[in-house]
């Protein structure tokens, strides 16, 4: 391998060194500086930051996190729902795993939803990859993403009854499913 190539690799490696954990609270600070209501409860555990955000401001917050210089969470790694159980209130949560392509750190946003009002605004306008994730969460949990361009079931058949990943849905279903 020639020297230039080696130097190039070394430069690449230096450019992609992970951000130190001391940089991470700056995300939180930036959020609070922008608007004090945005960051609700903040959980720092297992080396990860989770911010519980109010449902109504979700799209605003996501847009800010995506575009603000120094943050640039331009990739949505993952979006998944979770059910805390029928006796809990709020019952559902939707988790957004954000990834900053330039700074290489991760952040989790969490929205809590009550059982009788499982609506959350869509973030497909911010990250288009959210499209299938939101369809999956709708399919399995029954969380409705308002404003989604194509909110249909994705994994289960269109005529499926119920939402399979809810805690009160039995493991083997209510009755044998037949395609005919």
């Amino acid at each position: 391998m020639d020297i230039e190539r080696q130097q190039e690799i070394a430069k690449q490696a230096a450019a992609t060194t992970p951000a130190h954990s001391s940089d991470r609270p700056s995300v939180l600070a930036a959020l609070q500086r922008e608007n004090t209501d945005w960051a609700g409860e903040v959980i720092q555990a297992f080396g990860e930051i989770t911010i519980v955000v109010p449902r109504g401001r979700l799209v605003e917050i996501c847009t800010f996190l995506k575009t603000a210089p120094g943050l640039e969470f331009i990739m949505l790694s993952d979006l998944c729902g979770a059910d805390r159980g029928p006796e809990e209130d709020p019952r559902f949560e939707v988790n957004y795993q954000l990834f900053s392509v330039t700074k290489h750190y991760r952040l989790r946003l969490k929205v809590l939803l009550a059982e009788d009002d499982p609506h959350v605004p869509t973030v497909t306008g911010v990250w288009r990859t959210a499209n299938w994730h939101e369809r999956e969460t709708f399919d399995l949990f029954g969380v409705v993403f308002d404003g989604h361009p194509d909110l249909r079931r994705i994994l289960l058949p269109d005529d499926w009854q119920g939402h399979a990943l809810r805690k009160d849905f039995p493991l083997r279903g209510y009755e044998p499913y037949s395609l005919t």
Binding site: A45, F46, E48, T50, S77, D78, N95, Q97, R106, R108
Partner: peptide, 9 residues
Amino acid sequence: VPAGEVYHA
């Protein structure tokens, strides 16, 4: 396993 949530990639 201690209560909590993690995402590992």
